[in-house]
């Protein structure tokens, strides 16, 4: 059985072809800048007798270093799509190649390894472990990889620094604001140096200023070469991304380059801080 190890995961540098051929991919080309290639993806849920077609044939390519915003009405299949991208769910039909690995052929354990090494997932509801400190939440992915206890802590503290939470590492989720909790979740997504960060409505539960702050973090990560795909139904938030994909009824309705993405760091300056919760 083929396995992945971290050396096979390309460093987060933009537009650099992967040096090492992944052991899992088999026939696929090495010199490929595509991070994600998806062909005719469908996902049908069975609700008793009724079939719900959440995805009806989605084809898409995403290159390394992109910042994609996925939009669309509620129920258009965005979350279903993201869950499949994140290897949390399996498509009913279609091909999904992530970083030259054909995901459909992987076992449960191999999928877990992909989630651990290549993907950082950020959820709308944060999904932090309660009664567990920010630090321990961020450490969680490293518990499931072969990292020494010391290295685990160092990496986690570093990830928390990146999201500006170095002062809060021993706080519990219920001692943190929504924005701070989402930043912990982002730190957790980052800690294992993923090739891609997937965020399903990460600002859905946040106020507008905090939302922009979260977008600022994503933009910085993207500048460092990390590919980001995020779902949002707010055009304001989408305007920070470099590419806009709109879903409708389980299909892609439009797929456009955002020629002039806004810069979150600058936008923040124009928003007066109403409450001081994140500065507190």
């Amino acid at each position: 059985m083929n396995t992945i190890n971290s050396s096979q995961i390309p460093a987060g540098k933009n537009n650099e072809p992967p040096v090492i051929k992944s052991g899992l991919q088999g026939e696929y080309s090495i010199h490929n800048n595509k991070l994600i290639e998806i062909e005719k993806l469908t996902r049908t849920y069975l609700l008793g007798e009724v079939e719900v077609h959440a995805l009806r044939g989605v084809s898409i390519e995403v290159s390394k270093g992109e910042f994609v915003a996925i939009m669309g009405a509620s129920g258009s299949g965005k979350s279903t799509f993201m869950n499949i991208l994140g290897c949390l769910d399996k498509p009913t039909k279609g091909n999904y190649i992530l970083d030259n690995i054909e995901v459909g052929k992987l076992t449960r354990d191999e999928l877990a390894l992909i989630r651990n090494k290549k993907i950082g997932f950020v959820f709308q509801g944060f999904n932090l472990l309660s009664r567990t400190t920010a630090l321990e939440n961020v450490e969680l992915p490293l518990f499931y990889s072969t990292v020494s206890n010391k290295e685990r802590k160092e990496k986690s503290v570093e990830a928390l620094k990146k999201v500006g939470l170095e002062e809060r590492i021993y706080h519990y989720p219920n001692q943190l604001s929504g924005g701070q909790q989402q930043r912990v979740a982002i730190a957790r997504a980052l800690v294992n140096n993923p090739s891609i960060v997937l965020a399903d409505e990460p600002t859905g539960n946040l106020d507008s200023r905090t939302s922009v702050e979260v977008m600022e973090i994503f933009q910085k990560l993207n500048d460092q070469g990390i590919t980001i795909i995020l779902v949002t139904h707010e055009p304001d938030i989408a305007s920070f991304a470099k590419r806009h994909i709109v879903f409708r009824d389980g299909r892609i309705k439009s797929d456009k380059i955002n020629v002039n993405p806004r810069n979150a760091s600058e936008v923040i300056k124009t928003i007066p801080s109403i409450d001081e919760e994140d500065e507190a």
């Binding site: 449960r108 877990a112 989630r115 992915p141 990889s145």
Partner: peptide, 9 residues
């Protein structure tokens, strides 16, 4: 949550 960050069965 554990599985989403890479815990195996």
């Amino acid at each position: 949550i554990r599985m989403s960050v890479g815990a195996r069965g």
